[in-house]
C-alpha cells in the first residue's frame, strides 16, 4: 500500500568549508493522511534538517521524500512551514502577512475576491481577528506564533510542518496554543509534522512520536504510536495510566543512556 508521505533512506551531508558532515542517514518514515506526527530528539540531532528536507528547503543527498506519489524536490505551499521564531515580515500587519501567502496560493486557483474572506477566516481560527491591523512588534510572542500558524493553515497545505512552534513561549501560553492546535487539527484533519523537545507536548498532541538518535548520522531510533482517545484533555490525561506509560517510553528513550 502506498502511503501519503514517505521518507525513504533519507540522508544528508553538509559541506562546510570543505569539511563534510553527515547529519542524517537512513531516515525512513511513513505518514498517513491526517496524522499528527511529532519529531523529538536532543538538540542538534537533525530534527530541523528533516523538516527542511520535507519542506524542500534542503536537498537530501541520499534517498528522497515522496508526497502523494510524487517526489519532493523544491519548496511549495502544499508543504507549509511554521517557523520556530514565527518569521513574520515585520513591516507587514498581521492581516498582510497572511494575505501575502494567500494571494500567492490562490493565484490561478481561486478568485481574488475570496482572498479577504479566507485571510479573515484563518485569523479567526487562531483567534487573532482582533489584532489583524497590528504590526508583529506590537503583539506578544504567543500571538505572533498564532499568526504564523494561521499563515501556514491558510495555504491549505497537504502537510503542515512546524519547527518547535511553541518552544519560545511560556508554559501557560503554550498549553493554550496546544489546545487550540488540537481543536484545529480535529476540525480540519490536516496532516501535521511537528518538532518538539517537550515530552508532554509530544504525547498530548501526537498520533505518532518519532524519536531520533543523537547525531551525527542521526536516524530514527524508535517510533511510538499514541493510541489515546480524542479529543484529549490535559487534566484528565494527567492521571491516565496509558498516557503516563507513553510519557515514560519517550523519557526512557531520551534519557535512558543508550542513545
Amino acid at each position: 500500500m502506498q502511503c501519503y508521505l514517505e521518507l525513504s533512506n533519507v540522508g544528508i551531508e553538509f559541506n562546510t568549508n570543505n569539511v563534510p558532515f553527515k547529519a542524517l542517514s537512513n531516515v525512513n518514515l511513513k505518514v498517513n493522511k491526517g496524522d499528527f506526527v511529532s519529531l523529538i530528539g536532543h538538540s542538534g540531532c537533525g530534527k530541523s534538517t528533516i523538516l527542511n528536507i520535507i519542506a524542500g528547503l534542503h536537498q537530501a543527498t541520499e534517498g528522497g521524500v515522496i508526497l502523494e506519489g510524487r517526489q519532493v524536490d523544491s519548496p511549495n505551499p502544499d508543504r507549509a512551514v511554521v517557523f520556530q521564531n514565527h518569521a513574520l515580515l515585520p513591516w507587514l500587519t498581521v492581516y498582510e502577512n497572511v494575505e501575502l501567502a494567500v494571494k500567492q496560493v490562490f493565484k490561478g486557483r481561486r478568485p481574488a475576491s475570496e482572498v479577504k474572506g479566507w485571510v479573515e477566516h484563518n485569523l479567526d481560527l487562531v483567534s487573532m481577528t482582533h489584532a489583524k491591523d497590528k504590526l508583529p512588534h506590537e503583539i506578544s510572542g504567543g500571538m505572533k506564533q498564532r499568526v504564523g500558524i494561521a499563515r501556514g493553515l491558510s495555504m491549505e497545505p497537504k502537510v503542515l510542518l512546524m519547527d518547535e512552534p511553541f518552544g519560545a513561549l511560556d508554559a501557560l501560553t503554550r498549553a493554550h496554543l496546544q489546545d487550540e492546535l488540537m481543536r484545529i487539527h480535529s476540525s480540519l484533519n490536516n496532516t501535521v509534522i511537528m518538532i518538539t523537545h517537550d515530552v508532554d507536548e509530544a504525547v498530548l498532541l501526537s498520533d505518532k512520536i518519532v524519536m531520533l538518535t543523537v547525531g551525527p548520522e542521526a536516524s530514527i531510533g524508535e517510533l511510538l504510536e499514541v493510541n489515546l482517545e480524542r479529543p484529549r484533555d490535559r487534566l484528565a490525561l494527567a492521571d491516565d495510566t496509558a498516557y503516563i506509560g507513553y510519557r515514560n517510553d519517550v523519557l526512557r528513550f531520551l534519557y535512558g543512556g543508550t542513545h
Binding site: P75, N76, P77, A87, A101, Q104
Partner: peptide, 26 residues
C-alpha cells in the same frame, strides 16, 4: 536578510519581483 524570511518567500513561491519589493527591500 533574515534566512527565515527568505525561506518564507521560497515556501510561498514568491516571484522574483515580489521577493525584492516585499522582502529584500524593506
Amino acid at each position: 536578510v533574515d534566512k527565515d524570511l527568505i525561506n518564507v518567500s521560497r515556501v510561498i513561491q514568491l516571484p522574483a519581483h515580489l521577493h525584492v519589493t516585499k522582502i529584500v527591500l524593506p
